[in-house]
Amino acid sequence: MSEFEPKIVAFVCNWCTYAGADLTGTSRIKYATNVRIVRFPCTGRIDYMLLTKAFASGADGIIVSGCHPNDCHYTSGNFHARRRWMVFKKLCDFMGIDTRRIVFSWVSAAEGVKWADIVNTTVEEVRKLGPYESYHKLSTQDILA
């Protein structure tokens, strides 16, 4: 059997992490193919319902990344994101969602190397945790069928 390839979805802000990932590209730094990037205007826009939705749709891991504190293009969106993340993390723990599958980080537009590192470590960590099939099946299977 071939090695498990986790599906990682990254929710990133347009101004820092998306641009940082662009820089990884322009610097030609290689990283794992497992990640798919979804662009938001700001981490403050990220609705944490989307994270549960992503797990339900088959994601094995999630990265949320935006501007460093005090660097937010909109001055404070990343602070709101961080504050909600602290609450959401506790809720996930309580609900039985494995929070090791969610990585929260700051990657600036100048940190192309850091972006590649975060993707690679997340992929390896989630690979160790294995597929998140249990949650995926329960949340999507047509149980009554």
Partner: peptide, 18 residues
């Protein structure tokens, strides 16, 4: 929010994974 509506973002996530 225009350009990043709820519908668009959920559709993107669904399209990626399914």
């Amino acid at each position: 929010i225009e350009g990043y509506t709820n519908l668009q973002m959920y559709a993107e996530v669904d399209a990626l994974l399914n």
